[in-house]
Design a protein around this nucleic acid. Sequence first.
DNA 1: CCCTATCTGTGAAATTACTTTCACAATTTT
DNA 2: AAAATTGTGAAAGTAATTTCACAGATAGGG
Lengths: 290, 290
Amino acid sequence: MAEATQTISDRIQQKLDDLTRAERQLALSILENYPASGLGPLTALAKDANVSVPTVARMVQKLGYKGYPDFQAELREELRAKVKNPIAKHDMWAEAAPSEHLLNRFTDAVMDNIRLTLSQINPVEFDAACGLVADQSRHLFIIGGRITHTLAEYFYLHMQVIRPNLTHVQSTSNTWPHYLLNAKKGDVFVIFDVRRYENNTLKLAEMAHARGAQIILFTDQWRSPVHHLADISLSCRIVVPSAWDSAATTMLLIETMISSVQNLNWGETKERMETLEVMFDQTKLFRKFT
Amino acid sequence: MAEATQTISDRIQQKLDDLTRAERQLALSILENYPASGLGPLTALAKDANVSVPTVARMVQKLGYKGYPDFQAELREELRAKVKNPIAKHDMWAEAAPSEHLLNRFTDAVMDNIRLTLSQINPVEFDAACGLVADQSRHLFIIGGRITHTLAEYFYLHMQVIRPNLTHVQSTSNTWPHYLLNAKKGDVFVIFDVRRYENNTLKLAEMAHARGAQIILFTDQWRSPVHHLADISLSCRIVVPSAWDSAATTMLLIETMISSVQNLNWGETKERMETLEVMFDQTKLFRKFT
DNA sequence: CCCTATCTGTGAAATTACTTTCACAATTTT
DNA sequence: AAAATTGTGAAAGTAATTTCACAGATAGGG
């Protein structure tokens, strides 16, 4: 028997470079539902991956199999071996690494963080926050700190496409008082503040609050002091096996909010995005999607 | 589609009493190598279980399937579901919201992305990348694009604390050729490029490669064209129910790398972090942790 | 920017493999 | 001893795979 030191999944990934566009699309589709999709009929696999039947036939031969049935036989053999092998612990993420490898421990922690964060979130408040952010009649201020300004900017870059009338402020910069001059009642401040909480951010929040603005706060489970001023606080778990905290869960919430706000503003967003596409095409900044 | 609250394995065991001797022999053989043996041709299964072909045909109908292919289809579906859900049947993440709420759908997608990304990552390559990034004798360049420069900066901000001798470059800026003048053989470039892939990033990578630098690439599952030049490519799943792609998985890998590099350099990092603490205290930028 | 080479899908035919079913004899069970 | 189960061998039917030629699409090179 051929000793399978490497799985078919490995082999596919390894040969990914030698594959053409449609074949790669197919290969990725196989890996998407591995190994189940490869065990069905060839026709179904082709339809699943949106490629033609000959493409599938061509690729399996390119991968070194006599034909599709041969390929399937190896898949089954691999599945058999894997199930038999008690090493296949299910709480491992990178199966190619031992469970005590940092990749597995870190991912474990992040998964836990996401689970806990989501279980404690209030969907009504979240939706309300999205509603506020989507409201174009309010000026939108986005504020981040020393580290979190990267998250703030990520949020800002997307909001910029979705709606006008917004500003990105760095609380650590000494220019922010200028921005506040324009803030008025009803405006919305999206503030990022996780430990260590920053004095400047708190000051800024106080002034925004004094001016009657609405405050949406992204913070951690211990909650920034800003949360006393915030209309809506979203607390994320951030603890991972590292000397630093994790922003992965916060990122998840940010992206969910982006998606939600985009839906609320879809009519206009669509136009803005299409305009943007045209402009990008003109500047030739980006390559065509391959 | 019948909602299979019970697995086929369960169903077989349940009906075990109603089966005749040869059928039971067959059933046990199926369970022996479950589910692999059931996914092969009927003939092979019959031979494997030492029963005749008609016995197999008769039994699957007795179990309630239209025919052997029908039985196989359900087996595949079950396998697919099982692989997708390695831990528990966690239908909802935010239990306070209905399952079709964006919070749940989005989190579902991100969890899938993380799981798939990790299952396809090569720990040896990942560790090698961490080793390169940790090597302080090499100058470290960090490059991001229009959106990804926020990730690049997040990475940069942490690396800045861990090690000296590094630069953050925006590929969309027109200043980057200056930086490249200083790049020399053995230097390390950490490049972020997800769709839509940017021409400037590719050009920059080409020049870095020409100068004999090592390239570590964070990209998506379709892989930026930079990956032809990269010594190590880390592909992240990025598809979510949104008009945009998700950076959450990429963030996870970045943070894992930060943690790993920090461990490799722990001796020095510790001092640098303590120095930083003192400096922050002096500037009164941060509040004491409460 | 155009030209060429390569890749990809279509539709279909030919081939192969697999499933289903049958009748009947042998075997086992009751 | 009767009834039920099982295997045999094979035929018929069905489904899946493989291959082909060609046209359209795409990418790469000059």
